[in-house]
Design a binder for these strands. Structure first.
Lengths: 112, 112
DNA sequence: CCTATATTCAACACATCAGTTGATCAACGG
DNA sequence: CCGTTGATCAACTGATGTGTTGAATATAGG
């Protein structure tokens, strides 16, 4: 699946805020409404509501309808796409470092 | 190692920009200077220089000194700390979903 | 020394973001 | 029907981010 650059923008930027990360952490333990999610924070519910809109736009959460409530659910698939992106480059770099180490080891051996 | 919230802020926010992600991608293939990194982009070298400062402040890259050049190196350890953070919550959510599915399956069995 | 090259600093414009307050909308429950 | 509750919208403020241009710094090399 082709990873959309703008989707990565939205998702990584969404995770770049401590409030939004805390919301993700909370939702990893189960769905919750805006009021429930806002309760531990000292900022207004409107502010939490907008953080949730950012998370929803990034795909990190989805929302359903239950009467007047709008429960939020974490979407692990988008988290997985982020780790995939990161790991691609991390593994490439680590493999390169191992090759460099191997070369240095070879040089050291030859110097004996 | 205790994950610092502000460090996560800096690292995730750093990855929330397509230029900085492209710089990370380039550096995963080996170290490079500001001029080399700026070459593929249409923005000024000053802008690239500041993107690199953001990446350095996040710990995602480190910089050395080689005469008048300041080569940049990718730091896989910080990438790893990000995947760890993400995976913690992703795995928790996926495990919860599996438990829910198991319960639904049990209910379905009992209805037979 | 003098000049070219690599990089950064400073000041500015412009856009976006995170928060507030106050109003609005929609659904529930008596 | 009406008041309450959950949630969002709108308008505004202050802070931050991204880009520009032009000047400054530092090192390399003749």
């Amino acid at each position: 699946m082709p990873v959309d650059e703008e989707a990565l923008d939205r998702a990584f930027t969404a995770l770049g805020d401590p409030v939004r990360r805390a919301l993700i952490a909370r939702l990893s333990r189960g769905e919750a409404t805006v009021n429930e999610l806002a309760e531990p924070f000292e900022i207004t519910k409107q502010a939490i509501s907008r953080h949730l809109q950012v998370l929803e736009a990034s795909g990190l959460i989805t929302r359903s309808r239950d009467g007047q409530r709008r429960p939020c659910h974490l979407n692990p698939a988008v988290l997985e796409s982020l780790t995939s992106w990161i790991d691609g480059y991390r593994l490439a770099a680590e493999a390169r470092f191992r090759r460099i180490d191997a070369v240095l080891e070879t040089v050291k051996e030859q110097e004996k």
